[in-house]
Design a protein around this nucleic acid. Structure first.
Lengths: 153, 153
DNA sequence: TTTCATGCAAATGATTTGCACTGTA
DNA sequence: TACAGTGCAAATCATTTGCATGAAA
């Protein structure tokens, strides 16, 4: 986790001014675990900045992304935002639509890294970052389905 | 690659009728290598069905996806469609926006499979399919950038 | 004084939806 | 005859853009 000082420095690479609004947005996203949508970020930040608008959120998310601090994850309906830039795996439940990081043990990390190495070894593709999503049913929805509570998929 | 017969059977799981239009769309996507957008599919199918509309394309892509024949890949501006349901890696160029499958050697396949096994071993998440994207610069754009032809990224 | 972030409103554009029409089971 | 797929038009909605205002360098 970055200190606020480091965060400000990173943001200055792409934004001339780092305002309290931007800091608040950055902190909401960087401290999140649930890959929030723009709406969710908006709701969380609005507590501190009632005048906050979506345009400002989008603008700041753009800055954070260009600073390499977060990653946009486009989904079918809308994007979510990922503060974990380390190689890892996302588990996406197709039923409840929650997105969580898979157990971040070092060997999952290492496997993604070596997959990346293996791919770059044999192509001149210059990889900057990656997105690894596994889609399926989370334990809760999986159980609900077994109990017949879910419509057929 | 599926025979047309097998394709029809798979589609019948989710669509009562498999029309010539639907077959044409299915074949365009399933035979594609470039992860086409809806617009691209539209243009390719329109050669054979001048009356084709986007609504029909979207509808058919939904059927193909529910049949497990293709995968929708949402990107920032629009979705692309992936006919390769095998575990593999996509290389996404952030400059020219082309998307290609990484060299489909068996060990890349195996690495994705064991990553998947490793993740499911220690969680009750029921994985159905996966998306593995590496973002960066393709060889062509990478070279252009070194020659200074690209705006700073 | 110049620049840049904010907030608001309007625009954009991919995707979805409603509905009439038509061919097929 | 009933129904599912097609085609067209209209609606939806996330995201982007333009612009006036205000604060910071």
């Amino acid at each position: 986790m970055l200190t606020q000082q480091e965060l400000v420095e990173r943001m200055r690479e792409w934004a001339v001014r780092v305002t309290p609004q931007r800091l608040a947005i950055a902190e909401v996203v960087l401290n999140s675990q649930d890959h929030p949508t723009v709406q969710q970020i908006y709701e969380r930040v609005r507590d501190h900045f009632p005048s906050m608008t979506l345009a400002t959120i989008y603008s700041t998310l753009g800055v954070l992304q260009k600073s390499g601090l977060i990653q946009e994850l486009p989904f079918q309906r809308q994007s979510r935002y990922e503060p974990n830039m380390e190689p890892h795996v996302n588990l996406v439940c197709i039923e409840c639509e929650n997105v969580i990081d898979a157990d971040t043990s070092s060997d999952v990390h290492d496997m993604v890294v070596s997959l990346r190495n293996s791919v770059t070894e044999r192509s001149d593709f210059e990889v900057g970052w990656q997105r690894v999503d596994f889609y399926g049913l989370c334990p809760r929805c999986s159980a609900a389905k077994r109990r017949g509570e879910l419509a057929e998929v």
